[in-house]
Amino acid sequence: MLIVVLVFGALATAFGALLGFAAIRFKVESDPLVDKIDALLPQTQCGQCGFAGCKPYATAMANGEADINQCPPGGESTILALADMLQKDAKPLNPENGAHSVKRVALIREPHCIGCTLCIQACPVDAILGAAKQMHTVISEECTGCDLCLPPCPVDCIDMIPVDVTIKNWKWPAPNQSTRPDTRSFAVSS
């Protein structure tokens, strides 16, 4: 009996020492997976996923606290990319988080703007130009369509305009029949 205890004790100590040494030798500092996940997200910082921005959502996904189908602006392509990276099953967008819509940018109706700067403070990417009592304008190239400027505006003078399709950003449609409708993609339209 004593032999057993001694032998196992010795073995355990030896292995423990080895592992301890390995733990120090192979210490890992940071967690780059969060950054990799964040790189796949559309950066609208809109909060529709239920988190306070894209980085918190990415962190939650890295920790397994959030599902991959909570981002409406990212749409199907983001879900597929996340499924690929995290080795999970792709699934349809969670309707509780919102619906995927065509890309829109904000437009301020200038005759109604009162220069209150509330929308400027709300914009997460500083895409609104203006100052107190001065005209406010949305820089359309930087606007991500997150809708966060709409609630603060006291005179409701901001409209969301769908982005035009031009020859520059036109995409060939997928051919008529059977773009894969199931395990990889859910909406046959893209």
Binding site: L18, A22, A23, F26, K27, V28, D31, P32, L33
Partner: peptide, 11 residues
Amino acid sequence: FTEMVVHKTSP
């Protein structure tokens, strides 16, 4: 041990 090595070399 393998886990530690993998974590270090390919997070």
